[in-house]
Design a protein around this nucleic acid. Structure first.
Lengths: 337, 337
DNA sequence: GTGAAAGCGCTAACAA
DNA sequence: TTGTTAGCGCTTTCAC
């Protein structure tokens, strides 16, 4: 884009004038319409290039009814998980010439509806990432948000493509891994009690418990951040557990740091696992045993479905990613009793 | 927003019809113009609420010449530094009812110009975060991008508000800290040679070297990611340095991880510092000594200036944040020779 | 193959 | 105080 003499961006009218044609012809040329005399088309292109003209996306959006832009709402832009989803979405969308608009709800469920509606209105579609709002609200909202894709939030009545990580399935190999190492008293650091992903982990652990009657799984209220994990250290130690399943990597890392301060050695005295496999997990000391969730792919798959929806095609099937266990140095044999 | 019977969003015309007034009156009411009969205004509001009408942002953008949206271009959405800048910007802008559009250049300097121009065109302003493009290109681009704010890229001829971290000043206390601990042979893991922030660190180190003739500072080509730091381990060990200044925290963490694998103890055998103080730094084992850069604030201050520019006000002065040294466990006395 | 003209949905100047 | 109307910059019928 360049500015014309008036200081404002060059418009189609100026190009038309300079090229001695009508604006429709310019429009046709710019949009690659082939029913234009090649010689004229060349002239128009030359003028457009000289004036550094490109059509106003605003005006195009209005008349075409699409913006080439999608929104994503996340609960917390500080969380590496959502950052990765954003990244996956942004990069995939960019390949199809779409831009991404970010909306951060700051974990305030009350604002989500307004925020999503508003973000959606200036875009062609929206991705809802782990929305916290109550089920009935979500259900009421979805129709007016369409096209919409849901990430990490299943809803029994969803009418939208849904992508999830299977936390219930994912946490079981972690627990079994500790069990195989001889741990019998295992603590689970709980996340946000309202979140679906915490509930899923709990049912995974219930299943593990049923299969391993010799194991004790103790729930310890904790949270989802470094600080939460750090603060849970005393409760963990008091619990007498020899193995700890953190709600996520952040919690595990916070706990690890607190254990270090207290001189508790990992994994010699205590084994510890995280969840998500954020980029930092494998660089911890010791590297964190965790379950890897392909969050970037979650974003990419979301784009695929959005793109299909926008093209009037049928989106691919819903997907539930099975987390893959990554055994690293933070877990080891249970200490002799 | 709701859809009318036609399936398309409700427009101002339908509201006007239902309320028995002209569209201008509806427009006035929706925009809080007080020169409207209170009774009529009430009726309009009632109809608007019933129809769940809200004005099309697209149409408003076109006629008002503003989108209530700003863009940010970052070199790499994977880097915690840029994630934090994005977060600061997004949250600050949200308070003023602005949205943020993300453009990730994937570290390809060649694409930056196009990407920035395009992103800018569907927004009211743009933030350029550490652009990699050559000086002359940047200078040519800035006028057409205005209003624009630069982050971490000074340009001798800039006509745009600029926010930076003072890497030259920031690295010196880190080097002095190592010196005070008795380190005399100090390695610096270099970042991208083209980046301004690497050059600045180098001049800071040159100054340190001049003030401390008894110290040897050895540059080691490295990079900016975990992997780069990890790969530099052998070169670091071969250098015989007892203290290492990583280009940033990522590099330091990567190196730390590699040192662990090799059984080199930090800080007993080797002291190590990072740069940036990303959220993970203090949870490393040992916690990383680093220089903290207030990246979220960088994003917030960028918004302040953008907002001023958009309001036709004079933006605040340029700012250079002086990094603050955070002494933690990764540095200690130099081992006896 | 080309141009004139009708919108896309809205705001704001101008009239009444 | 209210309505009429001219755009914002573009695409797309519809005549020619």
């Amino acid at each position: 884009m360049a500015r014309s003499a008036s200081g404002r961006p060059v418009t189609i009218i100026e190009v038309a004038k300079q090229a001695g044609v009508s604006i429709s012809t310019v429009s046709r040329v710019m949009n690659g319409n082939h029913h234009v005399d090649p010689e004229i088309a060349g002239r128009v292109r030359a003028v457009a290039a000289e004036l550094r003209y490109s059509a106003s996306p605003l005006a195009r959006s209005l008349v075409l009814g699409r913006t080439q832009r999608v929104a994503i709402m996340v609960p917390d832009l500080e969380n590496p998980t959502f950052q990765s989803v954003l990244r996956g979405l942004t990069r995939a969308a960019a390949k199809d010439n779409y831009h991404v608009l970010v909306a951060d709800s700051l974990e305030t469920a009350g604002e989500e509806t307004t925020l999503a509606s508003e973000a959606r209105r200036c875009c062609d579609a929206i991705v809802l990432c782990a929305p916290r709002m109550p089920e009935d609200q979500l259900r009421a909202l979805l129709p007016e948000l369409a096209p919409v894709v849901l990430i990490n939030r299943e809803s029994p009545y969803v009418l939208a493509p849904t992508l999830t990580a299977d936390y219930e399935a994912g946490i079981q190999p972690l627990a079994r891994h500790l069990h195989q190492l001889g741990h019998r008293r295992i603590a689970y650091l709980e996340g946000n009690p309202d979140s679906a992903s915490n509930t899923q982990r709990l049912s995974g652990l219930a299943r593990f418990g049923a299969e391993h009657p010799d194991a004790d799984v103790i729930g310890i209220p904790c949270g989802v951040t470094f600080e939460h994990g750090h603060a849970a250290a005393d409760a963990v130690i008091a619990s007498g557990a020899t193995g700890v399943l953190g709600f996520n990597d952040l919690v595990a890392m916070g706990l690890l740091s607190a254990l270090n301060e207290r001189g508790v050695r990992v994994p010699e005295q205590l084994s510890l696992t995280g969840f998500d496999d954020i980029p930092f997990a494998k660089y911890m000391t010791p590297p964190l045993t965790t379950a890897s969730v392909p969050v970037v792919e979650l974003g990419e798959e979301a784009w695929k479905r959005l793109h299909a929806l926008l093209s009037g095609e049928k989106p691919d099937h819903d997907l539930s990613f099975r987390p893959r266990i990554e055994v690293r140095g933070s877990t080891g044999p249970a200490p002799a009793p």
